[in-house]
Design a protein around this nucleic acid. Structure first.
Lengths: 192, 192
DNA sequence: AATCGGTCTGACCGATCGGTCAGGTGCTGA
DNA sequence: TCAGCACCTGACCGATCGGTCAGACCGATT
């Protein structure tokens, strides 16, 4: 039933009107500055230059907006989770460290907009398994050890990386990533 | 400050009515769970068992409540800042590391209720110099180095400690503190 | 010319926010 | 007995929140 209403876009690259993307970009910008709860739909609409009703025409609700914004990062996080599981018992710690640093550097903006609202937002169904994944990440960082000191070190590193990436939004990737990898290798006990 | 409303309280055991303290305790409990912005004066009043107007009778406004709640932690933080400045050039890094771990462990609850709202709350006049202090803390952790890798490592450790303390609210101090000190010593490069 | 669907909007909704205010209550000192 | 004060409250305020809805606009199809 779909009439591709301009024969020119055979390349199927435009299933979504540009306003949709503009709203997404504006929301990312605002969320990164004032947080999810701290940003109103009005704020986003003002930044786009449209009405609040338009925002809610393109997205079912505020939560759906956040979900679409976080989807790529979550997909990569899930892929990392699978890769860690595949190395269980072997080089899981190294895979987790390198993979998470990569992810954190790449999705700095997404991490920044979750800052501090992580606990609240994890309750939402869209992020249901993210919590489990982060627990498995801590396991991997701790070298699958149950020793409290290992788990504490793992959480320090994990949370520290996330916060640091959110803070250094301007620094180039090539500078941030090796510095993070270095501190991670130093901080994590060799799995005992 | 409260008006000492009669010269008779020589015994200085009751300078503040008990409701005041109950509100303070209830606010600390709620803030730690749902955050500052996420907790309404209604929530606090409900937990105390009084009306919202009573909360605002004892505290000028919500910000004043938070200020009184954070005052002890901030006082200790300022003392640490002074101690670090005194060791400038010498053992500043060690003083900063041990002092901050102590502080973070001791004021876990206070740190937890700032979770993620740190950037917003630092704007408020009550926390004006806290921002400068935390920058000096990073300086000390980085061994006064300007190298980006040193500053990144410092921020990872600082933020990681804070987040970890906020997360492990149940674990006993004797277990948390040495584990944190160990990971800090490992993670921080010897000042080069 | 008529219609139709995608896009967009102003007006509006109920809920909740932090905060104000006039007044009630009960103890205390004169 | 009575004035004064600390304490507490319900009612109320303006602002803002996320979200709904009826309808305006407009290019494409018939």
């Amino acid at each position: 039933m779909l009439t591709d209403r301009s024969g020119i876009l055979e390349d199927m690259a435009r299933p979504v009107p540009e306003t949709h993307q503009e709203i997404l970009a504006a929301a990312a910008r605002r969320f990164a500055v004032t947080g999810y709860k701290g940003t109103s739909l009005q704020d986003i609409a003002r930044e786009v230059g449209c009405s609040k009703a338009t925002v809610l025409y393109h997205f079912a609700n505020k939560e759906a907006l956040l979900g679409e914004l976080m989807a790529p990062a979550i997909a990569v996080l899930e892929a990392l989770d699978a890769r860690i599981a595949a190395h269980r018992g072997g080089a899981a710690q190294r895979v987790a460290a390198e993979g998470f640093v990569d992810l954190a550097v790449r999705f700095r903006r997404e991490i920044a907009l979750l800052r501090g609202e992580f606990p609240d937002l994890l309750q939402q169904p869209a992020f249901a398994h993210v919590q489990q994944i982060s627990e498995r990440l801590i396991d991997a960082f701790a070298g699958q050890s149950d020793r409290p000191s290992a788990r504490i070190a793992a959480l320090v590193v994990l949370a520290g990386i996330a916060e640091t990436c959110a803070e250094f939004i301007a620094i180039p990737d090539e500078e941030l990533r090796p510095a993070l990898l270095a501190v991670v290798q130093r901080a994590l006990e060799p799995a005992t």
